[in-house]
Design a protein around this nucleic acid. Structure first.
Lengths: 174, 174
DNA sequence: AATGAAATCGACCAGCA
DNA sequence: TGCTGGTCGATTTCATT
């Protein structure tokens, strides 16, 4: 009935609780987690390791504030390309490789790529757009200026829909 | 000459080297960092703490793979609103609060909000778009389906333009 | 701001349910 | 497989420079 999950991680509520916690703050001590979830420190550690081995947790990273680097200008650039046949991968990687580029999405529809970039000044934005246009195969670009960002939590577990949550806890057939 | 930086963190090359490392992988041991940078373990630790106190490092987080949760469908939704006067903040927060929504950008131009969301199934996507339309003030939506994502490194220090890098190392006047 | 020593916390192992 | 308790190694803290 439910074959939405390719990689069935087979998680339980305890795993979700751990993930929800460490996804927003990995600086919580094992002891705190152990107390909150009524488990031993070793058990928490065991589960965390399993989550890393399963690649549910891809890695532990420090989140650097872009504003601390004066990266105050955010732009969303729609990029259309000329020959879409097969070249999309190369162009996507070229876009992602540009300095200042944060995220690149290849989309269906009129626009082929959506590029989100972050720079300090209008000059840098100008140069970045020039470099985008200079990529072979790029046809047209259209940029929007971002006034405000509303969420960068990037919290996968916290933003699950109830259906998505259920699907994880009750894997299909295995 | 260079007033691009509001928050001057006063960093040096060593700080940048540490940041570049821990931003992609915080699991490196202090010893490894100490050897690489020819410093004592305590010095690395001291600098890391300072970077946290200065909010250059906003936090340490575990990166959870959305695919492990079957979140295979990514959509970019352009949202236009009716009355833009003052309500943008409320609408932005309402959008960001929806389950499945990952990022929300308020932009200048024809489109007012760009919403990036991540769900498991077409049904969930459908429901999400319905919930977006149901938000008071939302006028029109247009969604694009994402076929491929090219960069989610979210590495601030690694993606700095040379100019941006220089601006950090040589703060303006202070 | 950096160092080295002492206290604290996390990683790993053997054993057990 | 998942958990426990204990040991070792790493990290955090602090007095000192």
């Amino acid at each position: 009935m439910n074959d939405a999950l390719r990689t069935a991680p087979n998680l339980d509520e305890t795993d979700l609780a751990i993930l929800e916690r460490v996804e927003t703050d990995f600086d919580v001590s094992l002891e705190t987690l152990a107390e909150e979830l009524d488990l031993s420190k070793s058990a928490i550690h065991y589960r965390l390791n399993k989550l890393k081995d399963n690649d549910v947790i891809e890695g532990i990273t420090a989140d650097v504030d872009p504003l601390a680097f004066g990266l105050e200008m955010v732009a969303i650039t729609d990029v259309s390309v000329t020959h879409e046949q097969g070249y999309s991968e190369d162009i996507g990687e070229a876009l992602a490789g540009l300095e200042g580029v944060d995220q690149v999405y290849y989309t269906l529809g009129d626009i082929d790529f959506v590029v989100i970039s972050r720079v300090q000044t209008r000059e840098q934005l100008n140069e970045l757009i020039d470099r985008i246009v200079a990529i072979g195969g790029v046809n047209e670009t259209s940029s929007k200026f971002v006034m405000r960002e509303f969420e960068n939590e990037r919290s996968v577990t916290a933003n699950l829909t109830p259906a998505a949550r259920e699907a994880v806890l009750e894997p299909s057939t295995d």
